[in-house]
Write a protein that binds this DNA or RNA. Structure first.
Length: 119
DNA sequence: AGCGTGACAAGGT
DNA sequence: GACCTTGCCACGC
């Protein structure tokens, strides 16, 4: 019956992976927004935990997930911090002092544009 | 069960 | 903006 250890990757985890995988290139979203879109309102902290478990063979754009205020969640100067910053910049997202302007690069902004054709 | 910890969030100083 | 405090949720001890 059951397989090895990863017997059952909880639906919640899969839902989170799916949402993160849909963040458009060049855009960012907050942990809370990911949780909400995954049908897990209030579980922002779970998103961070799950992303940490993300298997390497799954090319997940984890670096597009930031805190609600646009700041990178890792300690400045840490290895993951630097990688996230680099990968964001690589795809055109401006990172100033470890922070991204959500109003300019937030995923939500796409919806706003669709709904009422805004810049 | 209680307590500390963390890739969080929101509100106040 | 930088900090602090509360509220949250998931885990481990």
């Amino acid at each position: 019956m059951n397989l090895d250890m990863s017997d059952e990757i909880p639906d919640a985890h899969r839902a989170i992976f799916d949402v993160v995988a849909r963040i458009p290139r060049g855009r960012v979203a907050s942990y809370g927004e990911i949780a909400a879109r995954a049908g897990l309102p209030g579980r922002a902290r779970m998103v961070g935990k799950v992303l940490g478990l993300a298997p390497d063979d799954r090319p997940l754009p984890w670096f597009r997930v930031l805190r609600s205020d646009g700041r990178i969640a890792f300690p400045p100067r840490s290895a993951p911090y630097r990688e996230q910053r680099a990968r964001l910049i690589e795809e055109g997202v401006r990172v100033v002092a470890g922070r991204v302007d959500i109003k300019a690069f937030g995923w939500e902004r796409d919806l706003d544009r669709e709904l009422w054709g805004h810049p």
